[in-house]
């Protein structure tokens, strides 16, 4: 039967796995701060989650890209950009962009909230399912930053003063913040609590 370090009256280091007696404050091997369980972890998860959600709203309302050519000036939002690609006949690329910049960010908010709730209501998911969902959220979260990089590259490339220019829109800032905040939310999670009874 598997027992946890906590059940054995010991504290495991979250960074390196070294096991300590409960009165030790810093890991003797890697120097990280030790805690059997982070008592405020779940609160910090919700705080970062909420902050991420709040800045995600302007990220969708305001333009991500401002395109200026000789004849016209267009502003495109995140969803607008995907729709535009779709209308130009690039369905495959439009689908990838839609998944990366809409489905994944929204899915991440739902997944983190679901994980946080299932720690309180144990019947929502099995421990193994929670463990896998957490691994997915942790892995995929940083990839949303791709949208910000695309805007940066386009704006630095398309710079033909009078003829055509692309400028970044203010939504890029709130989108980047939203990605950073949700990454913080995932990192505030103490995955060991998934397995506690």
């Amino acid at each position: 039967m598997t027992i946890s370090a906590r059940q054995a009256g010991l504290v495991g280091c979250l960074r390196c796995g070294r096991v300590h007696l409960p009165d030790v404050a810093l890991c003797t091997r890697c120097g990280a701060a030790l805690s059997s369980r982070d008592p405020n972890g779940l609160q910090r998860v919700w705080a970062w989650w909420l902050a991420g959600l709040l800045v995600y709203i302007p990220a969708n309302l305001y333009p991500m890209l401002l395109t200026r050519t000789l004849t016209q000036r267009t502003e495109s939002t995140i969803i607008g950009g995907a729709v535009e690609l779709f209308q130009h006949g690039d369905a495959g690329i439009a689908l990838i962009v839609f998944v990366a910049s809409v489905v994944i960010p929204v899915g991440k908010f739902i997944a983190i909230a679901f994980l946080a709730m299932s720690l309180e209501k144990r019947h929502l998911m099995t421990e193994h399912a929670q463990h896998r969902l957490f691994a997915v959220v942790e892995f995929i979260g940083r990839w949303s930053m791709i949208d910000v990089f695309v805007v940066a590259i386009l704006a630095s490339l398309v710079r033909f003063d009078a003829v055509a220019t692309i400028n970044p829109g203010i939504a890029a800032v709130s989108f980047a913040l939203s990605v950073a905040f949700t990454m913080q939310a995932a990192q505030s999670f103490d995955p060991r609590t998934i397995w506690d009874d």
Partner: peptide, 14 residues
């Protein structure tokens, strides 16, 4: 001995 034990950083299993 404690030095021979490891707690899994993901689930705390000893």
């Amino acid at each position: 001995p404690l030095a021979e034990l490891r707690a899994c950083p993901h689930c705390d299993a000893l």
